[in-house]
């Protein structure tokens, strides 16, 4: 089901004060894929996301999205090109309402400026209406959880799981091609996890998004991913289907440590 090559990452490295957070990383995503990035804590997964979304500048290598290099672009320009993301430690605009959270995320897809806002022009009204509709549309993806009376409530009153959902909705609202999900089910209970796993599948099948996901929950990884990439110490140590990766001795070693008899 893979289509055209969307995102290619070549020999990507980044160092923080002499420390290699990522080393010579190669990676690619095809249209319509769901790729999981796994690896032990500190393996550089979030740095990897930060680099794609333009929040961290790599020291070497290249990131090519649809034939265009993303290097040197600001995060907002990356988002405008169609890569949206969520954050590991849910970072919503807590004091804005739920609807506003998804409305503000459409900033780079809309264009009304000073003139329209001041004179309440017809095109301004039309655009506001569209922003609102699209916002409610993406919120509707999570059933009744985030709509109805919730629309006007501040995001800070949401439960933990709903905040994660809202964050996903917010990334959907930017009308992206690729969504980077940073531990989407972290902190959710098994039932919620199962539900969200289904929804991640739907993100591709119904909405046509391509998904790159960092996840620790192996069940989720197994259920949704087409391909799994394993990072350790900033390097790719394995790539392939879940089955291939999960039986790879290097991966097991990275997670569990070296078996005692081999350690010398």
């Amino acid at each position: 089901m893979s289509g055209e090559r969307l995102l290619t990452i070549k020999n990507l490295s980044v160092t923080f004060g002499g420390l290699h957070a990522l080393k010579d990383l190669n990676f690619h995503v095809d249209e319509g894929e769901i790729v999981s990035v796994i690896g032990p804590n500190g393996a550089g997964k979030t740095t990897f996301f930060n680099m794609i979304s333009g929040m961290v500048t790599p020291t070497a290598g290249d990131i090519i999205f649809r034939g265009e290099s993303l290097l040197g672009l600001d995060p907002n320009q990356v988002t405008a090109r169609g890569i949206a993301r969520t954050f590991q430690n849910v970072r919503l605009f807590a004091n804005m309402t739920i609807l506003e959270n998804v409305m503000v995320a459409q900033h780079c897809r809309t264009k009304q400026g000073l003139w329209g806002s001041l004179f309440n022009t017809a095109s301004f009204k039309k655009e506001e209406e569209e922003i609102r509709e699209w916002g409610e549309h993406v919120l509707g993806f999570f059933g009744s959880r985030l709509i109805g009376y919730r629309l006007e409530q501040p995001a800070s009153v949401l439960s933990y799981a709903n905040r994660r959902r809202l964050e996903i909705a917010r990334s959907m609202a930017t009308k992206p091609t690729v969504i980077l999900l940073d531990e989407p089910v972290a902190g959710m209970n098994p039932k919620e996890t199962e539900e969200l796993t289904g929804l991640i599948g739907k993100l591709r099948s119904e909405w046509g998004f391509t998904i790159v996901m960092i996840e620790h929950d192996m069940k989720v990884v197994r259920d949704v991913s087409d391909r799994v990439v394993v990072l350790d110490h900033g390097e790719t140590i394995a790539q392939g289907s879940y089955e291939e990766v999960s039986t790879n001795p290097e991966v097991i070693e990275a997670y569990l440590g070296r078996p005692a008899e081999e350690a010398s």
């Binding site: 500048t57 790599p58 020291t59 290249d62 290099s69 290097l71 040197g72 672009l73």
Partner: peptide
């Protein structure tokens, strides 16, 4: 990379 960065 640095050059590309500037050119961007």
């Amino acid at each position: 990379t640095a050059m590309r960065h500037k050119a961007a």
